[in-house]
Amino acid sequence: MRKLLITLTLVMILSGLVLAATFQGLTDRIEENRVAALNASLAAVFGGDADATFAELPGSDETTIYEGTAANGTALGYAVRLPAQGYGGQITLLVGLGPDLRSIRGIEVVEHIETPGLGGRITETEFREQFVGLDTQIDLSYVKNIEPNADVNEVQAISGATITSSAIVTGINEGLAQAIPAIEGRAE
């Protein structure tokens, strides 16, 4: 009995030590990767300016707001990190807004667990670039199988992934409805 306990305890302690050492050795790099991935996504919503810097502003519970500044000091606008309830689970989006908050500069999918090949296609450029230039003053909507009219903020849903497409549109509408007043309130 004593041998059982001693062996088991020893193995647990050794395992804990090995894991603690591995974690210590890798945690900085993992954090760097996380920050680099976030910065790359933030830069991508503003057209891929790799030298831009981003400052986090106080957001609401669900949204996080970043203020972007280009390398030469001009304001790029704001990026809003917001959630959407997709088909497979939560989708996290970054929506870039111009400095006047009136138009969408671009969207990036940060995280999703949608079905590959169906809802997963939200990460494709063809889907994402539909949002560029849309008006933030009108709610977005989506259409299926017909040409969307960008003037009234329509985007084409992904064929076979209506729930995901709808989730993105709803998520952006709800997220921006919270974030835009928050940014405006801060400026005043």
Partner: peptide
């Protein structure tokens, strides 16, 4: 000891899996 071999192997396996997970993340 034969009686606790499965928990011991499980701990060893879990340790290496966690290492693999951390290395992939890094």
């Amino acid at each position: 000891p034969n009686e606790v071999r499965i928990p011991i192997y499980a701990v060893i396996i879990a340790t290496f899996v966690t290492i693999a997970d951390l290395v992939l993340k890094a």
